[in-house]
Nucleic acid binder design. Structure first.
Lengths: 180, 180
DNA sequence: TGGCGATGTCAACACTTGTTGGCCTACAAT
DNA sequence: ATTGTAGGCCAACAAGTGTTGACATCGCCA
């Protein structure tokens, strides 16, 4: 079949995200990604240069924080947890990054970058700039641990918990890390 | 040089733990492990059969919980966090498992197993058997997230925090998950 | 119609991986 | 001194990797 260049690029990118998210960097091969996309491995190289650049393209992330200044201060924890649960379930790039950042230094650096440029600044508007990095780091540790247990390692009790129960348990933790 | 069979096996195992912990399952090659151990790759096969069995041997873990029934109930959170910080820093097998469980289903299964057979039962003695899995799961999510941020992804604010500050912040979370 | 650039395929490359079998060598028992 | 054996090394295999360059084919424009 014949497609536009942009279409093909998008198809490859979607397949890459899925594979990287499912398998991590090393186990996700160019051949398997190309197979999923229904094209030749050589096309992947033509459009993205090499595997590293393909990964970089697949791991672009925007946390899309809403305007938290409008949220009542005592509900910030719950809002943040809910927001992240939504992200983890709909944004494959986040799973890509978590699955990969654990064994790949470049991906870990990308996570630290997202933390520093997207999460920490938002937290700073809530808690002031001096303690913001620590508080943001603590919140990140709980959020990441939750994602790890629920979406990656699939600990049965955490997987089985309904979304609302999860928010009920985790939100006070985030609230305390950010606002106490 | 000539060594006893048991010695060589131990040397290989130590090198394997280090490599698996640093690189994860796929990137840690038999050749690199053998290189670190100063022996031929063929020896690894002779002593452990194949890579999977070597990994299984390197990932044997005992969380070594002390007797928590003697601990004052309101200090359980702090004790648990301190215990785990010690584990993460001295037991390479834990990092092996975390680095690997994210992309390797067998390792993830092992983590779920450790969770179910070593962590959950201890929690059950504190909180009764009905809510124990959920509470243990929540505690695990915070502990794992902390380890991820501090030892794997190396988020600067979390890396920089002294051990005592970390305990001060995280312990109340664990305390609430387990005892409220 | 002819040609040309964009889109896609094929086969091969150089390399690395886990794994195997044969061979060598030291050492202890006979 | 000879031999048996356990410990160790080497070279090679088959399979799979990222990557490349030459070749085919479609569709548009002159």
């Amino acid at each position: 079949m014949r497609r536009s260049s942009a279409d093909t690029k998008a198809v490859i990118l979607a397949a890459a995200r899925e594979r990287f998210a499912a398998d991590g960097y090393e186990k996700a091969t160019i051949r398997s990604i190309a197979g999923d996309a229904g094209i030749d491995p050589a096309m992947v190289m033509r459009y993205f240069g090499n595997k590293e650049k393909l990964f970089a393209a697949a791991a672009h992330i925007d946390l899309k924080f809403p305007d938290f200044s409008a949220v009542p201060r005592d509900q910030i924890g719950a809002r943040l947890v809910a927001h992240f649960l939504g992200l983890w379930e709909h944004n494959e790039a986040l799973q890509v990054l978590l699955r990969t950042g654990v064994t790949n230094e470049a991906a870990a650096e990308r996570m630290r970058d997202i933390f520093a440029t997207q999460l920490a600044p938002v937290i700073a508007t809530l808690t002031g700039p001096d303690q913001a990095p620590i508080r943001a780091g603590l919140a990140a540790s709980q959020i990441l641990g939750l994602a790890l247990a629920r979406y990656i390692l699939k600990f049965p009790p955490i997987v089985a918990m309904p979304r609302d129960d999860l928010i009920h348990w985790i939100a006070p933790t985030i609230q305390r890390y950010l606002c106490d």
